[in-house]
Amino acid sequence: MSGAEITADAPMSRTRAERHMPGEEGVWVFIMGDMTVFALFFLVFAWYSGQAPELFAASQATLNAGYGLFNTCLLLTSSWFVVLAMNAVRHRLDRQAAVLFVLAACCGLGFSVIKVLEYGEKIGAGLVPVTNDFYMFYYILTGLHFVHVVIGMIVVLFMALRAWRGVNLRTHLSFLEGGASYWHMVDLLWIVLFPLIYLMK
């Protein structure tokens, strides 16, 4: 269950017989807890949307789905960079892994810049959290997610630093796997938020 059980020479050749927890158990308690909180937000949003379909549809029409699409692709790409970085770590290509982690963080930065531009546009147009229920949910859900993106970027940059200084697979893999899992969760939550807020009819 712990990273220490993985041998440095064959970490890639895991089979179903030797199942492996990616990261510490505590990280997974946090991830599943976080996902559950977001799931409740998704359900409450969908329920309110069903109560006032015209208001939600009219408000949704003021959003730019192009931003949402581009940001989804940025986070998917960022997640993919982290997967490649973890592959590099396991192939003992630590410096390449560091570069890939930095690229992942850059995608996160791109997401953040677009998000700030989007918030600026909306606030400039007088669309704020108190405008209506849709906008209240829009700011709470995307804002809460945005906090996760910022924290995730910091974690990924620490992962880059770790990789650059050299990875000891016995002692560092668990931290890297936990951080990677957290960053994938940030991606995963946005995968639901994008259609839920920007596209659903």
Binding site: T15, R19, H20, M21, W80, E177, A180, S181, H184
Partner: peptide, 8 residues
């Protein structure tokens, strides 16, 4: 990506 395919 999260490697849950081979997780416990």
């Amino acid at each position: 990506f999260m490697e849950l395919k081979t997780a416990p």
